[in-house]
Amino acid sequence: MEDREIVELYWQRSDLAISETEQKYGRYCRSIAYNICGRHEDAEECVNDTWLRAWNRMPDQRPAVLSAFLGCITRNIAINRIKAKNRLKRGGGEAVLALDELEDCIPGGTDPEKVLVERELEKAIGGFVSRLPEAERMLFVLRYWYVASIDEIAEKTGFSKGKIKSSLFRTRGKLRRYLQEEGLC
């Protein structure tokens, strides 16, 4: 079923909306949730919550790209979940490694909450990523949007793990400098 048809089902409040979404995007959302949570049980609950949240948002929203819309919801739910369970340093899955790496981008001793709103940060990151070279952008998104493991990225892209790590290291450095220049941290 086409995405626009699935979205239409949501707008019509049809029960088929969720089953069609599950069929088309179940594996996709489970993968994202599992990468972040590191547990199948948690991933399953995240996905169920994703369908519920999508149901509650449509209508009013009519997402242009359903996969990205659902993926964002899943990410938020999964991140909230690991935060709530305070499991970050005790086996929180691939997200733990990704989070450790992202610490590189955050200067110590700053409290940017006063100057930062989440939307601005998202907008800045979106602009930053879009200007990266294609391969570098691909690796960054795979790692920090999909929270895919280095092994998985290597398998899918054909790049060596060393190259991937090196690329991510450089991109994190660029992001850190970019956020500083933008006054976001």
Partner: peptide, 8 residues
């Protein structure tokens, strides 16, 4: 920051 990646 991980959450803000939603801005991609």
């Amino acid at each position: 920051l991980l959450r803000a990646m939603n801005g991609i």
